[in-house]
């Protein structure tokens, strides 16, 4: 069944792409095909492929062996994902090593590290990253 849903998602992406491609203006360069030409080909192919996957999913021809994710693991993963998004949203605000330290410390905890290990590892990593990128690679962080 999972494959069936994935097939439907693929078809939807294809249809969306086709619709968007249709709104592109026509080309002005001689013989150069319109900007929407290739996207349409890709869109149609995606719809077709999605259809095949949907059919396979319904017929259960290919069953992807899937281990259910445990609730706790899913929660931990969601935590890390949330932390990543928060960290990126806060990029440029505050002070890089400090932001990074808190971010990494929380990540470690979400990954089931012991607090002491998490603290040491986060300190080392945030300072090392800051030093590596600002001093050696001359990248401007904040």
């Amino acid at each position: 069944m999972t494959d069936g849903i994935l097939g439907i998602i693929t078809i939807m992406i294809g249809v969306f792409l086709f619709h968007q491609a249709g709104q592109l203006p026509a080309g002005v360069l001689l013989f150069a095909l319109d900007p929407g030409f290739f996207p349409r080909i890709i869109a149609v192919t995606l719809v077709a492929l999605g259809g095949i996957l949907l059919q396979q999913g319904i017929k259960k021809k290919v069953q992807h062996t899937e281990e259910p994710i445990q609730k706790e693991t899913a929660l931990r993963l969601a935590c890390v994902a949330g932390l990543l998004i928060a960290y990126t949203l806060l990029w440029g605000k505050g002070f890089f090593p400090l932001n990074t330290f808190f971010f990494l410390f929380a990540c470690h905890l979400a990954m089931k590290a012991k607090p002491l290990l998490a603290a040491i590892s986060s300190v080392v990593l945030s300072v090392a990253t800051y030093y590596l990128f600002t001093q050696i690679f001359r990248v401007r962080l904040f």
Partner: peptide, 30 residues
């Protein structure tokens, strides 16, 4: 294992690469 899934992944890759200025006419796409 699955050629169909491989092709879907590949064409999604192509679709992602099309975001931005059209290579010929520099028309913004998607």
């Amino acid at each position: 294992a699955s050629i169909i899934k491989g092709l879907i992944a590949g064409f999604l890759g192509i679709a992602l690469s099309m975001v931005g200025l059209d290579p010929m006419l520099a028309t913004p796409r998607f």
